[in-house]
Nucleic acid binder design. Structure first.
Lengths: 138, 138
DNA sequence: CGGAATCCAGTGCGATACTG
DNA sequence: CAGTATCGCACTGGATTCCG
């Protein structure tokens, strides 16, 4: 989903039938890498595109490009072109993007705490019950 | 994705290479309908499966079934079988699930506020910039 | 009633390659 | 440097059907 959800949510918005604020919020940052981007921009300030790529080496060029575009369209991130010798593009949070930081931080804290608890449990199961494994192991 | 993210996150966990608490938290409730389920169970208490279906009529039987299973596997939701004449299954939040409520509520509040702001803008654009529209209009 | 299996169309996303 | 287009496979999720 993710983009599916985002599209659905935005369609509903356009048609004026939208009524679920939490889904809307989720759709803002539940795309791949989006929270990471928001988190880093919030914590460390502006980054160039190439810096973000280095920051998140597992993310593909395409994906990053698309997600940044969405974040900008949603008004969470500001895109600024800078003429160096080549053109560079700097990304930073807008005030709206910054207003999401408390939620991102709360998620960070919750995750940290929960991961610590899990490590105290049996390492084999992690207390998670069954886990679907993809067919192909990497 | 969604489940993709969830699977990735859990794989990493198993392999002990996990290091991103916020992704982990996101993976807990970013599947379709999951926040809705958590929200309702948190606000109104336990529900039977069939009640949840009625509560979220747009969600398919299959989807609800799968997501509840995941929520239970993640320890956020407790599954209880009740022998009526048929077997009914009751779902409620675990304490762990309840500990997510502050985040869900923060998302609710952020979304509410943001949606209100958007309504003050031009209704045509909603201040969102471009919106991808699916090929097929429903 | 609740869940699981099967089938199938629609989408996400990586790899690669091309523009300005 | 940043962004876009194309291709191809894996995954999602709706509809339907079957089991306890």
């Amino acid at each position: 989903m993710t983009d599916l959800v985002r599209n659905e949510v935005q369609e509903k918005l356009i048609n004026g039938v939208f009524n679920c604020p939490k889904e809307f919020t989720l759709s803002m940052f539940s795309g791949k890498w989006k929270i990471n981007i928001i988190y880093h921009l919030g914590k460390e300030g502006a980054y160039y595109f190439s810096e973000i790529e280095r920051l998140l080496p597992a993310a593909s060029h395409k994906e990053l490009s698309e997600k940044l575009k969405e974040l900008a369209a949603d008004g969470l991130v500001k895109r600024t072109e800078v003429k160096d010798q080549r053109i560079k593009v700097s990304y930073s949070l807008t005030p709206l993007g910054e207003s999401l930081l408390p939620i991102v931080n709360a998620m960070y804290d919750w995750g940290t705490k929960r991961l610590r608890e899990l490590k105290l449990d049996d390492k084999a199961t992690f207390g998670l019950g069954e886990v679907k494994r993809p067919a192909s192991e990497k």
